[in-house]
């Protein structure tokens, strides 16, 4: 737990790392919408090249991207297998009972595989090149227009900041409590599932009480500093939009145009 990492962020100084997190968030959003414009090998080819180019620009090893793909690997294999075995259309290569291996099945499965893996790649690019706190800040910043419809953007942003700051404290406290209880003979890894759950309870109670104290102390400290809900605040981390961030939007404009043209072939 001492080496606990928040999120997937990997420190770096690449072009993608330096981009404004709002540009990266908007780009990832745009990508998820744009991928539905792809409908043939040309358009999916462009999507793959675009994704590989973006991944290359992060200067992060392919191994990290593979780790991003791994949790969804079974879903991908399962979906692709179903598509190959049960989709009919075009040339039929094999027919055995309800199982049909057809041209459309194979093409569809390739498209699904590309769609899913490129979405995962793009999401990984966002999360490995942007610290979690900045992602939350960027999201809160993009939500600002919602203030007009009375959405509590500032409170939302404050909760995100406090919670992300709270996590390492929680982990540290949990480790201390577990070590203290282990020293008194407690065991957290023995016995069946019910025994294990029961062994967690004496650890969770002091953890929750401790955390509640921290929450109350924090509220007192914020009140003492005259924190007012809904009032405008200054920020320690200020997001600045640069010329290079604008280029991201140009890249996506070019991608959109390419997809619109190529989807007719």
């Amino acid at each position: 737990m001492d080496r606990f990492l928040l999120g997937q962020y990997i420190y770096g100084n690449s072009y993608v790392h330096r981009l404004d997190p709002r540009a990266k968030l908007l780009g990832t959003f745009a990508f998820i919408i744009l991928i539905f414009l792809a409908n043939n090998f040309w358009t999916y080819g462009v999507i793959v090249l675009f994704t590989l180019f973006a991944a290359y620009m992060t200067k992060i090893s392919a191994k990290i991207y593979w780790q991003g793909l791994r949790p969804m690997l079974w879903l991908m294999i399962f979906t692709v297998t179903l598509q190959i075995l049960f989709t009919s259309g075009g040339d039929i290569y094999l027919k055995w009972g309800i199982i049909t291996i057809s041209q459309y099945g194979i093409i569809n499965s390739i498209f699904i595989l590309v769609r899913l893996s490129t979405i995962i790649f793009m999401s990984t690019i966002l999360t490995i090149t942007t610290p979690p706190m900045l992602i939350a800040d960027a999201f809160a910043s993009l939500l600002k227009p919602l203030k007009k419809v009375k959405f509590p953007v500032d409170q939302f942003s404050m909760i995100c900041s406090i919670a992300l700051r709270f996590v390492p404290t929680l982990m540290e406290t949990a480790t201390k409590i577990m070590n203290a209880q282990r020293a008194r003979g407690a065991s957290f890894n023995d016995g069946n599932i019910i025994k294990r759950i029961k062994s967690i309870i004496p650890m969770l109670i002091p953890l929750l009480i401790n955390s509640m104290k921290i929450a109350i102390d924090l509220a007192e400290s914020m009140t003492a500093r005259n924190y007012q809900l809904g009032e405008p605040r200054t920020q320690f981390r200020r997001l600045r939009w640069h010329k290079t961030d604008l280029y991201v939007l140009y890249y996506f404009a070019i991608l959109t145009l390419l997809l619109i043209v190529l989807r007719r072939f």
Binding site: I159, A163, M212, A215, L218, L229
Partner: peptide, 13 residues
Amino acid sequence: VVSLTKTALVTAI
């Protein structure tokens, strides 16, 4: 403010 920090605590958990 207390309510806000308690909400953040549950988010953190």
